[in-house]
Amino acid sequence: MKIQGAVVLITSAGSAMGRMLSQHYAELGAKLVLCDHQPHLLEETHTLCNALKASTISYTLSTTPTDDVDALLEYIEQTYQQAPDILINHWPNSAPPSLLLASEHINACLTQWGRMTNNFFVFGQRCAQRMRQSSHPGVIINTVSFNRVNDEHAMESTNAMLMGFTQSWAKELLPYQIRVGGVIPHSQSKHGQHHDYAELTRHTEYIVANDYFSGRVVTT
């Protein structure tokens, strides 16, 4: 798929990796839709992309953004008269609860984890639905960043979950010309560094540009 002129929706765009993804696709000439639930961080990303002369709109999500996704997609279709061509579904820095976690912290951690999983899935499901309705090819890229996670086992658990989503979604969406790929960091020793974010970002571009890439995950 050609990136220049494509409508690219980036979730968690205010995070460190989300910001790098946004700037990269701005430089490639995409029409950007940036969303996050942290308005000040989202605005910083928006400003940087505007400085690159990119067509950019931003959308602030609530702290429980599931209910916002349909409204956001309606806004995109009103603005650009089409569904997103590309969804970069970014999971930022949230690991599953440990079995060894103290009992008093379990409920809070499970609530956060459930919210993250739900939002990640809903973005994929709603975007796929809009792409199908528009009857033109689309791309969904699942990616994750770990800028504060120190537990390598937690990192492996999250990566495995994203790999599972990517492979199952790709099989479901194959008949509709919607490709699904994934990009995940490989080792704990590298994650969280800006050059690693840059490498992850370049791999997302590779997936978009390679029309035969689907159902696989690039590990960097």
Score class of each variant (00 low, 15 high):
residue 186 H to Y: 14
residue 170 A to F: 08
residue 176 Y to N: 03
residue 128 A to L: 02
residue 183 V to N: 00
residue 193 Q to H: 12
residue 199 E to I: 15
residue 183 V to H: 01
residue 169 W to R: 00
residue 218 V to G: 01
residue 186 H to S: 15
residue 167 Q to N: 07
residue 192 G to Q: 02
residue 195 H to I: 13
residue 182 G to E: 09
residue 201 T to L: 00
residue 115 R to P: 06
residue 154 A to L: 12
residue 182 G to P: 08
residue 155 M to E: 04
residue 174 L to F: 14
residue 145 S to E: 05
residue 160 A to Y: 09
residue 191 H to P: 01
residue 126 R to Y: 10
residue 157 S to Y: 11
residue 219 T to I: 12
residue 167 Q to V: 14
residue 133 Q to S: 14
residue 124 G to Q: 05
residue 134 S to Q: 12
residue 151 D to C: 00
residue 145 S to V: 01
residue 161 M to R: 10
residue 119 N to T: 15
residue 132 R to A: 03
residue 171 K to D: 09
residue 214 S to N: 09
residue 204 T to M: 00
residue 118 N to A: 15
residue 163 M to D: 05
residue 179 R to E: 10
residue 123 F to Y: 15
residue 131 M to C: 09
residue 218 V to A: 07
residue 125 Q to I: 02
residue 213 F to K: 03
residue 180 V to K: 03
residue 216 R to N: 13
residue 162 L to I: 12
residue 193 Q to T: 14
residue 183 V to R: 02
residue 193 Q to K: 15
residue 215 G to S: 10
residue 205 E to N: 07
residue 207 I to F: 09
residue 134 S to M: 05
residue 133 Q to W: 10
residue 147 N to C: 06
residue 155 M to A: 03
residue 143 T to R: 01
residue 181 G to R: 02
residue 172 E to G: 08
residue 147 N to L: 05
residue 135 S to N: 14
residue 144 V to M: 00
residue 206 Y to G: 00
residue 169 W to L: 06
residue 174 L to R: 14
residue 212 Y to I: 08
residue 190 K to F: 12
residue 141 I to D: 07
residue 151 D to A: 04
residue 186 H to M: 07
residue 138 G to A: 11
residue 201 T to E: 05
residue 134 S to H: 13
residue 136 H to M: 09
residue 153 H to L: 07
residue 116 M to N: 11
residue 190 K to R: 13
residue 190 K to L: 11
residue 183 V to E: 01
residue 175 P to M: 11
residue 176 Y to C: 01
residue 117 T to G: 07
residue 198 A to F: 03
residue 163 M to W: 03
residue 197 Y to M: 03
residue 171 K to C: 08
residue 175 P to E: 08
residue 164 G to F: 12
residue 185 P to M: 04
residue 193 Q to S: 09
residue 178 I to Y: 12
residue 124 G to M: 05
residue 183 V to K: 00
residue 134 S to Y: 09
residue 209 A to T: 15
residue 185 P to L: 00
